[in-house]
Nucleic acid binder design. Structure first.
Lengths: 254, 254
DNA sequence: CGTTGACGTTGACGTGACGTCAACGTCTTA
DNA sequence: TAAGACGTTGACGTCACGTCAACGTCAACG
């Protein structure tokens, strides 16, 4: 048999057979005078065994080990390991399909475009609170979506604890809307506008009402806020800065 | 923000961020005087969006398309496609896990070692017919395992149709055992031994009893058999050759 | 006899989404 | 001033092959 016949017999490509030779997983058969590899039944049986192992999910390295050890008691181990791995993959796929179904549902409902892939929790929150269409609210939406994607679990959890409480109380929501209205009025204001200070106080009180635990991680520094103020008008940014200072001051010596 | 801070914020590596720049999936931010990239909120929001899409299963190319098209109505399409793909993967995993469970079961039963990964059909057959421990029977076992792994479905199906019938009839099985006994007696015989011809006839009749349909593919040639006779004694190989000739002659002008 | 086309040989490069390392520059802190 | 943490670019590795190049071999055809 030549390589093409062997490969066709087992349903693989000739490249695969040569690759197995290269990897030492299938012994090289003798060559004919013209240099062609000449295969016999032993090779076909060996290749079949390799293929069965690979199709069970073994890597080529694992298959080589199983074949090399005649006394290979490792096979059940390896198989159990592969099964555990497949089980994990199966769970992951199910989780991802569930998320996909949610997103797909929302995509067909056809609402909020750039936030359509956010977490269900956040989408639910955004739907409930109906932030106004102002630029300041858009900034806050971006911030929320960012927190939603953030890696650090404690920050995320703290944020969503607050959001749940806000969403649950209509009076709180209307206070939030008032805050946005007043923040919007500062769009063209100077950074020393007198309306800034009271609004910052309102923000601090409003937030502290819900953040009973430490709202900031231990390595918090004010300049970490700066990159996220991009997109706000100077006076608006100043409100956030001062509000954060209030909160840090009020909580630091806990 | 510098690249490490941005990466930590979203829970990816700096390599990933730079890779996204390289792939044009995330715009390069301005550089500081020292050459460091300086990120702002816009970048964080953009990266968060990319990550959400990627975590949903989009490839980077797909994510780039979705992000580039503002009017991208493709997202539902892509998501549906991904879901179909995941569904297929899920089915494949379930099938593989079922096969793994079977093999693992047999591995723990701890019997037939080199055939432990064969298909359930074949394992069942081997268990039923209890081939003798002779070398000729070992050869046949190898051949069966080979056919079990063969790519061509018609050949496989024909073979297993025969095997099912053999396994079902005890009298047929005893005739098979007699055949092996007589074949074993030829282990040391010369290739012109007089016992060869009648045994070849027995093989042909035995096999033709079950192979009512054409037993050979249309491009069958006798020399295709040769590689598989390796491992048999010369006289034994001659039995197979002559038996195949009988079968081909008896069926060719159908 | 030459040509065509199928098959064989080796070797190199590509795949996807990064990880890892090298060799170097920059910044902060002790 | 030295160390160590962070930044920069660039190159190579991953896994199981697919694909292509450049070439040799062989059977069949006109």
């Amino acid at each position: 048999m030549r390589i093409g016949e062997l490969a066709a017999l087992l349903g693989v490509s000739t490249r695969t057979v040569r690759y197995y030779h290269h990897q030492g997983i299938l012994p090289e058969p003798p060559r004919l005078a013209n240099g062609y590899r000449e295969y016999g039944m032993r090779d076909a049986v060996a290749l079949a065994r390799v293929r069965r192992l690979v199709e069970l999910g073994l890597s080529l390295d694992e298959a080589r080990d199983v074949i090399a050890d005649d006394e290979s008691r490792e096979l059940p181990e390896i198989l159990a390991e592969i099964d555990a791995d497949l089980a994990r993959q199966e769970r992951e796929i199910q989780i991802r399909r569930a998320r996909l179904a949610e997103v797909l549902q929302r995509a067909q409902d056809g609402t909020l475009r750039p936030y359509d892939t956010a977490s269900p929790d956040l989408v639910e929150f955004l739907r409930q609170v109906e932030l106004p269409a102002s630029s300041a609210a858009a900034w806050d939406r971006d911030l929320l979506v960012l927190m939603d994607s953030m890696a650090a679990p404690p920050a995320r959890e703290r944020a969503f604890t607050v959001l749940d409480q806000v969403a649950a109380d209509p009076e709180t929501r209307s206070r939030g809307q008032e805050f946005y209205r007043r923040l919007d009025e500062l769009a063209e204001a100077e950074p020393d506008d007198p309306r800034i200070a009271p609004l910052a106080k309102m923000l601090a009180e409003y937030t502290l009402t819900y953040m009973l635990a430490d709202p900031a991680p231990p390595d918090w520094r004010p300049e970490m806020l700066e990159p996220f103020l991009e997109g706000l008008a100077p006076a608006q940014a100043e409100v956030i800065r001062q509000g954060m200072r209030h909160m840090s001051a009020g909580k630091r010596p806990r």
